[in-house]
C-alpha cells in the first residue's frame, strides 16, 4: 500500500529525517515508535505532503506522490489524523464530520453518512449539534478519527491517538483500530503507548534521530525488553 524510500525532511536548516524507509502492506497495522523528537510526526507529515522541504520517494499503491499536494493524496485514499487533532473551532460536531466528506462526491449524502458514523461512535452521535471544541479530549480524538474515516480511506495514518486520554476510552480506541483493520483499512500508527500498540500491530519500525534503527514483527518486539528500554522510554 505505502512504500517510503530515502525520505528526507528539513525544518529550515535542520535535517530532521535522514533517509527514512519503511513499508506498510495492504490491510496491515504498522506501528512507528520512537522517543520524543525522533521524527515520527515529521514522517507522517512528509508522507501527507505537509512539509515544504522534503526529498525521497513516497509510493502510494505504486504511484510516487511525493511531489503532489496534500489534497491530491486524500483523493488517492490517504487519510491523516494529526497529533493535535485539529478539530475546527466554531463548528459543531456534525459540521466537523461533514468536513470529512467535503471533498468527495458523497457530500450530498452527508446526513446518511453521519448517521452511519453515529452508530459507530455513539458518543459523537449524541452530540452532533454541540460545538466540537467543547468535547472532552478523548471525544475530540474520536471525532478526529471519525472525520478521517467517514470518506472511507484506503489507508489512515494516526499520530499518537491515545495521548492524554482516559484509560476507558483508550480501550475503546484500540478496539476500534482492530475493527478498522478487519474492514480492510490499512493503518500506520504512531504511538507512545508502545505495549498497547504492539498488541494490535502486525509489524513495527523504530525511529531514532531521523533514521529507522530497527524493524520487526510486533509480537517479537513486544518481548524484546532491551530494545524497548533503549528506544521507547519517554
Amino acid at each position: 500500500m505505502l512504500r517510503v524510500h530515502d525520505l528526507n525532511a528539513w525544518y529550515g536548516p535542520s535535517h530532521v529525517l535522514q533517509g527514512v524507509g519503511f513499508e506498510v502492506g495492504v490491510g496491515e497495522i504498522v506501528c512507528l515508535i520512537g522517543r520524543n523528537g525522533a521524527g515520527k510526526t515529521t514522517t507522517l507529515k512528509a508522507v501527507m505532503g505537509l512539509i515544504a522541504r522534503r526529498g525521497g520517494r513516497v509510493l502510494l499503491a505504486g504511484e510516487d506522490i511525493l511531489a503532489r499536494p496534500a489534497h491530491a493524496r486524500f483523493a488517492r485514499g490517504l487519510a491523516y489524523v494529526p497529533e493535535e487533532r485539529r478539530i475546527v473551532p466554531g463548528l459543531t460536531v456534525g459540521e466537523n464530520l461533514r468536513l470529512g466528506l467535503i471533498a468527495t462526491r458523497r457530500f450530498g449524502d452527508a446526513g446518511r453518512e453521519i448517521a452511519a458514523m453515529a452508530t459507530l461512535f455513539p458518543r459523537l452521535g449524541e452530540r452532533l449539534d454541540q460545538i466540537a471544541v467543547t468535547l472532552s479530549g478523548g471525544e475530540q480524538q474520536m471525532l478526529a478519527i471519525a472525520r478521517a474515516m467517514i470518506a472511507g480511506p484506503r489507508m489512515i495514518m494516526l499520530d499518537e491517538p491515545s495521548e492524554g486520554i482516559m484509560p476507558a476510552l483508550v480501550d475503546e480506541m484500540f478496539a476500534l483500530f482492530a475493527r478498522m483493520k478487519q474492514s480492510g483499512t490499512t493503518i500506520l500508527l504512531v504511538e507512545q503507548n508502545v505495549e498497547r500498540a504492539l498488541e494490535i500491530a502486525d509489524r513495527a519500525y523504530i525511529l531514532d534521530q531521523g533514521v529507522i534503527v530497527h524493524e520487526g514483527r510486533a509480537r517479537a518486539l513486544l518481548q524484546d525488553a532491551a530494545i524497548k528500554e533503549r528506544y521507547c522510554s519517554v
Binding site: 505537509l50 489534497h71 463548528l91 468536513l99 467535503i102 471533498a103 468527495t104 478521517a148 470518506a151
Partner: peptide, 24 residues
C-alpha cells in the same frame, strides 16, 4: 452551502482542509 462551510473552516485551519482533500 458546501463552499461556505469550506470557507468558514478554512479561515480557522487551512492545513486540516488540505488534509481533508480541499484544494485551498
Amino acid at each position: 452551502t458546501r463552499i461556505g462551510l469550506i470557507i468558514r473552516a478554512g479561515a480557522r485551519d487551512p492545513e486540516i482542509m488540505r488534509v481533508l482533500g480541499v484544494d485551498t
